[in-house]
């Protein structure tokens, strides 16, 4: 068990290391010279060169990579070209806001998706199963900004149930903030619902068809007890993994949703940094996304292992 966790951790760190290299060198391919970008098109070439030197951009790439990663490990993610301030002072609040939005989306979608999947599995082949499966499938294929537009028109403009923007006025109470976040969270919920429901459905069906479920029924246990004690426990295991792996997708979705609703989260930060060619901000933001994703999958793997004795005791990890 401990060996498994250590192995997974080492693998995640290796992936992160590779990712950091890819991000750093991808940043080098981006067109435009940072010194030129900061000083503008009319600055003298000598000033640009001096600034490049000051920023350390005339050093060999390997040295630059090493100092970037060394600083990042010490909590220094660099200085934004655009704002001339530490990247972390923008990154941390943006990450917090995105997290808030993501949490609202997860709090809505996880129970809903599991419920939908379990209901579909229990009513397998019936009308309600078809409806849940097809709805989930269709919703998960529509881009967030498309469902976002339809929702804005329906909920914010025609019926005026919810506000059009995502950011509550400063100093609003928690329930008000929450009310502002519901509309932007729904497009994310739409996409995730289909996945979670599908995994929950597949897991439940597998559990329903298993020998232990049949034994429990033949033992004379009431259906309700069989479902709660025997089936749900097993069927929800794979769902945990899906939920964790969807964090990666979720951050991609945040870029779009935050853009549509003008919400200053991590997605919007990266988007703006990319269009402004603010490399330190962009690199740090993308690295943070990678860390969040790898951490989420690692935690999911460990939770899965802890909950699943077959892996915990068997030790297979592939």
């Amino acid at each position: 068990m401990a060996r498994y966790v250590v192995k997974r951790l080492a693998l995640a760190l290796l992936t992160l290391f590779l990712l950091s290299i890819i991000i750093f060198f991808a940043g080098q391919i981006l067109p435009g010279n940072p010194g030129r970008a900061i000083l503008g098109p009319f600055a003298a070439q000598s000033a640009v060169r001096a600034l490049d030197h000051q920023l350390g951009l005339d050093r060999p790439l390997v040295v630059q990579y090493w100092s970037w990663i060394w600083d990042a490990l010490h909590g220094n993610l660099g200085t934004s070209y655009e704002y001339r301030a530490p990247v972390s002072s923008f990154l941390v609040p943006a990450l917090g806001r995105s997290l808030k939005l993501a949490v609202v989306a997860f709090v809505i979608v996880v129970p809903l998706g599991i419920l939908g999947g379990v209901v579909a599995a229990l009513k397998r082949g019936k009308m309600i199963d078809r409806v849940i499966t097809v709805t989930g499938l269709s919703l998960s294929t529509v881009p967030e900004f498309v469902s976002g537009i339809v929702l804005i028109v329906l909920l914010a403009i025609v019926t005026k149930v919810l506000p059009v923007t995502a950011d509550a006025p400063p100093g609003s109470s928690f329930p008000t903030q929450l009310r502002y976040l519901i509309l932007p969270a729904i497009p994310l919920v739409f996409i995730l619902f289909g996945y979670i429901a599908r995994m929950a459905r597949a897991g439940t069906i597998e559990a329903l068809d298993s020998d232990y479920a049949r034994t429990a029924v033949l033992k004379g246990l009431p259906r309700r007890v069989v479902i709660w004690r025997h089936i749900l426990r097993n069927s929800l295991l794979p769902t945990i993994t899906v939920i964790a792996t969807q964090t990666g997708y979720l951050i991609g979705g945040l870029v779009v949703v935050e853009d549509l609703f003008n919400y200053p989260g991590l997605g919007r930060l990266i988007f703006t940094a990319a269009t402004d060619k603010d490399f330190p901000m962009l690199e740090a933001g993308v690295l943070v996304i990678g860390v969040v994703y790898l951490a989420a999958t690692l935690i999911a793997d460990i939770v899965y292992t802890v909950l699943n004795p077959r892996i915990r005791l068997g030790g297979s990890d592939q």
Binding site: L14, L18, L19, I22, I29, L30, P31, V256
Partner: peptide
């Protein structure tokens, strides 16, 4: 496999838009 894994630790949309920003 490792390289694929590393790139795919980022959402597809973000990978795609980074490339598009680089290439125009």
């Amino acid at each position: 496999g490792r390289v694929v894994e590393a790139v795919l630790a980022l959402p597809v949309i973000i990978v795609a838009f980074l490339f598009v920003v680089a290439a125009g």
